[in-house]
Design a protein around this nucleic acid. Structure first.
Length: 865
RNA sequence: GCCCGGGUGGCGGAAUGGUAGACGCUGGGGACUUAAAAUCCCUUGCUCGAAAGAGCGUGAGGGUUCGAGUCCCUCCCCGGGCACCA
């Protein structure tokens, strides 16, 4: 039943159809069936306390249009929604208010869901998931255990970024210019025991896999740059008076004759060893200074390069020359070998360093267009490739071509190995927070761990890796035992307060009855120590891991759970997975280009490798919607007062208007400003549609007639519109699809009558964009809802051609006239008609016609002199 | 600094190498109305002109082409990414 509105009353129409879709489960996806499946995915939102902002519905409307369109095209469409609800804001709210994060999270989710439903998105709410739901994170924990089992999860005591204000460790990716991405707080280095995932093992796979993905180029480029593969070689330099060698990494072995010194990082293990007594004090002072520098200060490009001479000399393996060895903080221990051969003539950094310390700069490459013998016309530093000079037997060779030969020659003398380096670092996977997935890991001492050998069938072996994971504390060694599958989910305990401890441990460390446990090595049982008196074999004391997983964990794989959200046996039934596959279309913000999207790919590559998933790449087609700016063309923010609240807009104009307007603003991927006047135009458009269909009494407009044949001119516009809208939806060009619909409605308005069939087809085109109005008018046309179940209209190409066409005539490329000619006209006739035209004549008079161009149905151009 | 995008009316934006400015907003004029809202019609790139019309015009300059917003080169500006990764 349609509503009884006599005017376009969206406040009545919209809730009516939302209720209809819910009652009739219009958009509930069924696993299996004859229809081809199509999976449309939105990036999982974080349900913040402030509710939806105006940017959210941009991507959601786009995916909703696609989903409804695909449903009309006969697909079985899966279009789900859920919540990435672990994370810092909820925890900080909990710290501030003392209420458990779960409570507030539930509240925020309810609000988000309410707001999303007001937009009429075609989500299958029966498949809703939340990463915070134990039935969900049970499988996040299970995937972690797989990573653990296969040796891709380990603990490390290396220095990590600690943010005092947030009370947690952050990953490299969460730091921007020495401050936390979230909250912009200063960060510092601290040594803490951390869980790390070996994503570097997948560097090449992740790079290779990018090639076949239909992703925005910029995102592929960002991931490529983040992985940062570089091919080069390690070069070994002997040190005068020492047995040890300095191993440097370089991508430019061709410049080796131009090396004038070596630089090692201040943290390099040989730094103090090779320093001569004479330079000891200065070197120690320098290393000390470096330690005190924040990484921000150290990586500040603007600062002048500093360093200190060690007094040691290395030998250039090519020519036997002595090279001074320096320590400088512009060389990073964490990349390559922590040592470089400095070639000032071909490297800007080395060049800059020599300017300060007055080191010689031998020239070994001249530019190809430098005619001089000695390369004096080649500027320094010269970073490109060219012709080698002053390079012994290699002089005269092309520098690029000399690389393999140089490596081979040095390799033969055991001074080089070709090697590959990556910028990508392993993924720091633990957080010292409460509101995240607990690690399903317990720690036991060495003796107890060895006694596990006595229990060959222990459930603790289920996920035990070949190489045990252990760490040392106060001289004692502890071993990680993975909880068995049967112990999952390992739920978060309730705690008194959510403040992290000053020591850097998570709030979970204070939940002693949860942390301190006994584990039964034989049965796999784990119980609180408070529930049992000091037990004996096979019980051993154990301590739970108190770190939690980062927010990225759940979002790595959540979209598989939508396929089979209630399954308590497996994370997704393989048959269901086989039916749906991975998302056909994924839309979300570009800010996740390297974090979520890289991590998720890593997990999928891994799960594919161990035979759990059929394919390694989760997202074949990816799209980023652009950001919607405030009306003043700056980023929306509360402090600027330029935010737009979706609830308010819906109250004033309706959800359909808001959906349509966000799509009409401009290309989906562009950044574009909000315009409060612009939405008025969309509202006018919707009212105009209503008036064309419904009269003042709420009855069907008498303009709509039951004749079979539409007037040819209107029919042609209709078919143009079907074609344009269809192709634009496929290409995600919603702004131009909408403008074509406006063009069509302007034609409807001018027509005296139009057929019911025309009326129906246009509503079908409109419905993905403005589904509430679409359904309302669909039913008032006497059709059965939902309009999304009616099959998508097709256009008839033969109706698009016109008998009489307008051809512009140019003289010397300038527009001079328009001719109305039969479409089928021959070239000679067309040209004759053009030349006969008065206005053309006046431009031809007294000139010589030298060329005549006729592009059929397009243009005539007469060239005169 | 390097690597990508992008610069089109007053504004958001359209334009497979073929009539630049579709569509919408804004502005101006008019109709309907007691009035307003709503709606409809005309108009709205710039300059000259009463008009017909002419000239100019897609960041700047050059080039290719019968023809360039679109392709090529140089430069300027804006946005994004990376940033001592050897």
């Amino acid at each position: 039943m349609a509503t009884d509105s006599t005017s376009y009353d969206f406040s009545k129409i919209e809730p009516h159809w939302q209720a209809f879709w819910e009652e009739n489960q219009t958009f509930c996806a069924k696993n299996f069936g004859d229809k081809p499946p199509y999976y449309v995915l939105d990036m999982l939102p974080y349900p913040s306390g402030t509710g939806l902002h105006i940017g959210h519905p941009e991507g959601y409307t786009a995916s909703d249009i696609l989903a409804r369109y695909k449903q009309s095209c006969g697909h079985n469409v899966l279009h789900p929604m859920g919540w990435d609800a672990f994370g810092l804001p909820a925890e900080q709210h909990a710290i501030a208010t003392g209420t458990p994060p779960a409570d507030n999270t539930t509240k925020n989710i309810d609000n988000f869901r309410r707001q999303l439903k007001r937009f009429g998105f075609s989500y299958d709410w029966q498949r809703e998931i939340s990463t915070t739901d134990p039935d969900f994170y049970r499988w996040t924990q299970w995937i972690f255990l797989q990573l653990f089992k296969y040796g891709l999860a380990y603990v490390d005591d290396k220095p990590v970024w600690w943010c005092p204000a947030l009370g947690t460790v952050l990953s490299n990716e969460e730091i921007i210019d020495g401050r936390s991405e979230r909250g912009n707080h200063p960060v510092e280095l601290r040594n803490l025991r951390q869980w790390v995932l070996r994503i570097t093992a997948y560097a090449d796979n992740l790079l290779e896999g990018l090639k076949d993905l239909q992703w925005p180029d910029s995102t592929k480029r960002q991931q490529t740059a983040w992985i940062g593969r570089s091919e080069g070689c390690n070069l070994q330099f002997d040190i005068e008076g020492h047995d040890e060698q300095i191993i440097t990494y370089t991508t430019r072995p061709d410049t080796i004759y131009g090396a004038s010194f070596l630089v090692i990082a201040p943290e390099h293990p040989l730094a103090l060893k090779i320093t001569t007594t004479e330079h000891k004090e200065a070197v120690e002072q320098y290393i000390q200074n470096t330690k005190q520098k924040s990484d921000l200060a150290r990586t500040d490009l603007a600062k002048e390069k500093t360093g200190v001479f060690t007094g040691a000399y290395a030998i250039n393996p090519m020519n036997g020359e002595k090279l001074s060895v320096w320590i400088a903080d512009y060389v990073l221990l964490t990349y390559g070998t922590g040592a470089v051969m400095a070639v000032p003539c071909n490297d800007a950094r080395d060049y800059e360093f020599t300017q300060r310390y007055d080191i010689p700069i031998p020239k070994v490459i001249k530019s190809k267009d430098d005619p001089t013998e000695d390369g004096s016309q080649t500027p320094m530093p010269f970073l490109g490739h060219g012709t080698l000079i002053n390079s012994g037997p290699y002089t005269g060779m092309d520098s690029k071509e000399s690389i393999p030969k140089m490596i081979a020659d040095l390799e033969a003398r055991k001074h080089a190995q070709a090697t590959v380096n990556y910028k990508l670092r392993d993924w720091l996977f633990s957080r010292q927070r409460y509101w995240g997935e607990p690690f399903p890991i317990i720690w036991i001492n060495e003796e107890d761990f060895q006694s596990l050998d006595n229990y060959p069938n222990s459930p603790f072996r289920e996920f035990l890796p070949k190489e045990p994971i252990a760490y040392e504390k106060d001289g004692e060694r502890f071993y990680a035992l993975p909880l068995p599958d049967s112990a999952l989910p390992l739920k978060l305990p309730e705690v008194e307060n959510y403040l992290p401890s000053e020591s850097g441990e998570s709030p979970l460390a204070k939940a002693l009855d949860w942390v301190d446990v006994y584990a039964n090595l034989e049965t796999g049982e784990v119980v609180s120590r408070q529930s049992m008196e000091a037990p004996s074999t096979p019980w051993v004391p154990a301590r739970r891991e108190t770190n939690t997983m980062p927010q990225w964990a759940g979002s790595c794989w959540y979209f598989l759970r939508y396929l089979d959200p209630k399954n308590d046996k497996v994370f997704v039934d393989p048959k269901v997975l086989e039916y749906w596959g991975f998302p056909d279309f994924y839309i979300g913000g570009a800010e996740h280009a390297v974090l979520h999207l890289l991590y998720s790919r890593f997990w999928f590559h891994f799960l594919h490798d161990i035979g759990i998933l059929p394919k390694p790449e989760p997202f074949k087609r990816l799209f980023h919607q652009g950001i919607i700016l405030g009306e003043d063309n700056t980023k929306m923010s509360k402090s600027r007062g330029n935010t737009v609240d979706p609830d308010t807009v819906i109250e004033a104009y309706g959800a359909d208007a808001l959906r349509l307007f966000e799509m009409f603003l401009g290309p989906l991927e562009d950044m574009k400003p909000w315009n409060s006047k612009g939405i008025e135009g969309i509202a006018r458009f919707l009212r105009k549609i209503w008036r064309e269909y419904i009269d003042g009494e709420g009855k069907l407009n008498t303009k709509i007639v039951d004749e079979a044949k539409e007037a040819p001119s209107l029919e042609r516009v209709l078919h143009e519109t079907i074609k344009k809208v269809t192709q634009d939806i496929e290409g995600l060009r919603f702004n131009t699809a909408i403008s074509q619909m406006m063009v069509f409605v302007n034609h409807l308005q001018k027509a005296n009558t139009f057929t019911r069939n025309t009326a129906k087809i246009f509503i079908q085109l409109l419905t993905p964009f403005a589904p509430h109005l679409g359904e309302e008018l669909w039913e008032r046309l006497g059709e059965k809802p939902s309009a999304s179940n009616a099959s998508w209209p097709t256009w008839d190409e033969s109706l698009l051609h016109v008998d009489e066409i307008t051809i512009p005539v140019q003289v010397n490329g300038k527009m001079r006239a328009e001719l109305s000619l039969p479409a089928s006209i021959e070239q000679a006739e067309a040209l004759a008609a053009a030349k006969a035209h008065d206005r053309v004549q006046s431009h031809l008079n007294g000139k010589t016609l030298i060329k005549e161009i006729y592009v059929p149905k397009k243009i005539i151009n007469l060239v005169v002199k």
